[in-house]
Write a protein that binds this DNA or RNA. Structure first.
Lengths: 228, 228
DNA sequence: AAGTGTGAATGCTTTCACAGCT
DNA sequence: AGCTGTGAAAGCATTCACACTT
């Protein structure tokens, strides 16, 4: 049926941006690809192409029904349901994510906390009990939790990953600045803050150097978190 | 001199990963592109190609000198110096980043905190005073701070961005889940946690659907944070 | 008229494969 | 013999431009 043509990774990244723009456009009934382009920073052609990977959602001469397209994208991304999320590693960053509203509002609810530090295990964070990482299989049993956010230090990241996979986790959002290896059916996306700062450093540095030579064009590329 | 050929965005993203792998390989003197490939998940050809955008760092028949290549990449990325970083928006996430060691160890030092909440202004966070965002021009004056991390909510993100630019900030790492528009000489990278979770949701959902049809291949693409 | 859907063309990026250096 | 550096080829993604629909 659908899955014949290969869908570009970047299309998926943009889909959620389109969705956000649609939420902002809810006071109007219909949007054109041109209008969506302005709101999202993509091109109109890009948006139409991206959408046709999944179906025909527009009306020629009119545009896209805001409500309907939003509904469709939710379905495509699988965010038309609530996902429970396990958060592993209750350090500074982990604690900051627990109460993060941006996740809840799109249906990602952090429901289980894990750590390996005996001092933390048993304590509560934002109303949730911190469990022993070694009990994860037991705790997640029958909860249907498939997504984990990994906010542990680099060193134990791989070992913890193995435990997660054993517990049935299928997708990991990894904040640790190290590669974790997983079997091919497990999805990993990495958020590497230091890497992003290094890229900013590069671009600033390059600008300084190139100003001395000539005016180098700024590239306005788009890309996103990485699979390993 | 250098800036003739267009350098792929993804090359820059990988550069920092190579650098990390080199740090891990410091007990050995020389690495081949093949070995680096294994450590970073890229291909050997990719690594060689990426590096030749910037020079010839290897010795045919031998490989790359670990120490030397690490030094070169630091220079390319501009991380052979210390960057001072302004952190704007001292909420949960902001507070979590202040003490983050991963930044400090690569030379990114958060030196100035800003918020707009009168209750927070004047207080301290991890030993740093929280300043009024409206004083930013004054506070950053002559500090040479060019990078800002933006951890404010969506609504004020654009307005705060304008203030940052006025204060001379040249690069922004934006955690707010909204597009911020900036003049072309300003660099923005976005980290959008909810978007990443949505992508994980998509891949899990797709796997479930495609298992019913046929075994769809897993794509192992690589990409990273986005410019808008 | 206005705006979608889409093959074809263009433009990038990655991979291949091998000449050439050590 | 081993491994880099690199043109050429292959593989992807984006943009164009227009037929077609409302």
């Amino acid at each position: 049926m659908k899955g014949q043509v290969k869908i570009p990774t970047d299309t998926i990244k943009r889909l959620f941006r389109y969705y956000r723009a649609l939420l902002e456009s809810r006071e109007t009934k219909v949007v054109s690809s041109e209008e969506l382009a302005k709101l999202t920073g993509s091109s109109a052609a890009q948006i139409r192409k991206d959408l046709t990977y999944f179906g025909e959602f527009g009306t020629p001469g009119k545009g896209y029904n805001v409500e309907e397209l939003g509904h469709q994208i939710k379905g495509i991304l699988g965010i038309d349901r609530e996902w429970t999320v396990a958060l592993v590693g209750i350090g500074n960053l982990g604690r900051a994510l627990v109460p993060y509203q941006g996740l809840k509002s799109e249906g990602f609810r952090i429901t289980h906390l894990f750590d390996s530090d005996p001092k933390k295990i048993g304590m509560a964070c934002a109303g949730l009990k911190i469990n022993d990482i070694n009990d994860i299989k037991l705790v997640l049993h029958n909860t249907g939790t498939k997504i984990a956010i990994l906010t542990v230090p680099s060193d134990p990241a791989q070992q913890v990953t193995n435990i997660l996979i054993d517990a049935g986790i299928q997708a990991i959002l990894n904040f640790a600045p190290s590669r974790i290896s997983v079997p091919p059916e497990i999805r990993v996306l990495n958020i590497d803050i230091t890497n992003e700062l290094a890229r900013l450093s590069y671009y600033i540095t390059k600008n300084i150097n190139s100003l001395a030579e000539e005016t180098t064009e700024q590239d306005q590329g788009t890309s996103g978190g990485d699979y390993y």
